[in-house]
Simulated assay, not measured.
Amino acid sequence: MHGPPLIGWGLVALCAAAGIYCLSRTRAGAAGERRAAWGDALMGLGMAAMAVPTGALDARPWGTAAFAAVFGAVGLHALAPARARAEASRAHDGHQLHHAVGAFAMVYMALAMAHSPTAGHGGVHHLGAGHEPAGTPLLTGVLLVYFAVYVVRAVARIVPAPAMVPGEPPWPGPERAYGSGLTRACRLSMGIGMLAMLLTM
C-alpha cells in the first residue's frame, strides 16, 4: 500500500485478523456458509498482503502478476454460473457477487499501481506530493461508492433495530449471535479496509 506506514500496518493487522477468523469458520455450518467463509478468508489474507506498506518488502514484477492471476481466478470462480446454481439461497448468491467485485477490485488496484506513470523502482507507485493518482479516476470512484454503500449496509446489519415478536425471544441464542456477529464484523472490517486501500490510489 502507498499511504502512511502506520495506516498500512493497521490495515495489515485488521485484514489478517479477519482472514484468520474466517479461515477458522470454514469447517462449520452448511456447504454454502463454508464456501462463503473460504472466500472471506482468501479476501482478508490477500488484502493483508496487499496492504503491506511500500518499502517493507522488495517489490518484484511477479508480485503484481501473482495478485492479478490469483484474484482474477477468484473473481471468475465466484461468477461461474454453476457456482451460483449450487448456492442454497439468494443471500449466498449475493455474497458470491460481492466476492467477485472485491476480487476484481484487488486485480484493478494491483495493475493500476504497478502501471502508474509515477511508479517507482520495481513498478511500485508512491502516492504523495507531486504524484498523480494510479488507476482510472472514474473506476476508482465507482468502486469507492460500492464499498461505501457496502460498509453502511454492513453497519446496519450489525446494529439492527430491535423487533419484539410475541412469544419469541428478542435475540437469537448466544452461540448463534456470537458467530453471526463476528462474521459480519469481519466483513465490515474488510469493507473498510478496501475503502482505505482505494483511497491511497
Score class of each variant (00 low, 15 high):
residue 4 P to H: 08
residue 5 P to G: 06
residue 6 L to K: 06
residue 6 L to N: 09
residue 6 L to Y: 04
residue 13 A to I: 13
residue 15 C to H: 01
residue 15 C to D: 05
residue 16 A to K: 10
residue 18 A to P: 02
residue 19 G to I: 03
residue 19 G to V: 08
residue 20 I to V: 15
residue 26 T to N: 03
residue 35 R to M: 12
residue 35 R to G: 08
residue 35 R to H: 08
residue 36 A to G: 01
residue 37 A to R: 05
residue 37 A to L: 06
residue 39 G to R: 02
residue 41 A to H: 03
residue 45 L to F: 04
residue 48 A to Y: 00
residue 51 A to G: 01
residue 52 V to Y: 00
residue 53 P to M: 07
residue 53 P to V: 07
residue 54 T to F: 01
residue 55 G to D: 07
residue 55 G to T: 09
residue 55 G to Y: 12
residue 56 A to D: 10
residue 57 L to W: 14
residue 58 D to K: 13
residue 60 R to W: 10
residue 61 P to K: 04
residue 63 G to H: 14
residue 66 A to T: 15
residue 69 A to Y: 09
residue 70 V to C: 14
residue 71 F to C: 06
residue 71 F to H: 03
residue 73 A to L: 15
residue 73 A to N: 08
residue 73 A to G: 11
residue 77 H to D: 08
residue 79 L to D: 03
residue 79 L to F: 06
residue 84 A to G: 05
residue 85 R to G: 05
residue 85 R to W: 08
residue 86 A to D: 12
residue 87 E to K: 07
residue 89 S to A: 15
residue 97 L to V: 13
residue 97 L to F: 12
residue 98 H to K: 13
residue 104 F to R: 07
residue 107 V to I: 10
residue 107 V to A: 11
residue 108 Y to V: 04
residue 108 Y to Q: 04
residue 109 M to W: 02
residue 109 M to S: 02
residue 114 A to M: 07
residue 116 S to G: 14
residue 120 G to N: 03
residue 124 V to N: 07
residue 125 H to L: 07
residue 126 H to V: 11
residue 126 H to S: 11
residue 127 L to H: 08
residue 137 P to D: 14
residue 137 P to L: 06
residue 138 L to C: 02
residue 138 L to Y: 01
residue 139 L to G: 01
residue 139 L to E: 04
residue 141 G to S: 11
residue 142 V to D: 01
residue 143 L to P: 01
residue 149 V to E: 05
residue 153 R to Y: 12
residue 153 R to D: 02
residue 153 R to M: 15
residue 155 V to Y: 03
residue 156 A to R: 06
residue 158 I to C: 13
residue 159 V to F: 15
residue 160 P to Q: 12
residue 161 A to Y: 05
residue 161 A to Q: 14
residue 165 V to F: 08
residue 168 E to C: 06
residue 169 P to V: 03
residue 169 P to S: 04
residue 171 W to F: 14
residue 172 P to K: 08
residue 174 P to D: 13
residue 177 A to F: 12
residue 179 G to P: 01
residue 180 S to I: 09
residue 181 G to V: 05
residue 183 T to R: 12
residue 183 T to G: 12
residue 184 R to N: 11
residue 184 R to Y: 04
residue 189 S to R: 02
residue 189 S to E: 09
residue 189 S to N: 06
residue 190 M to L: 15
residue 192 I to P: 00
residue 192 I to V: 15
residue 193 G to A: 15
residue 195 L to I: 15
residue 198 L to F: 07
residue 198 L to Y: 00
residue 200 T to C: 04
residue 201 M to P: 00
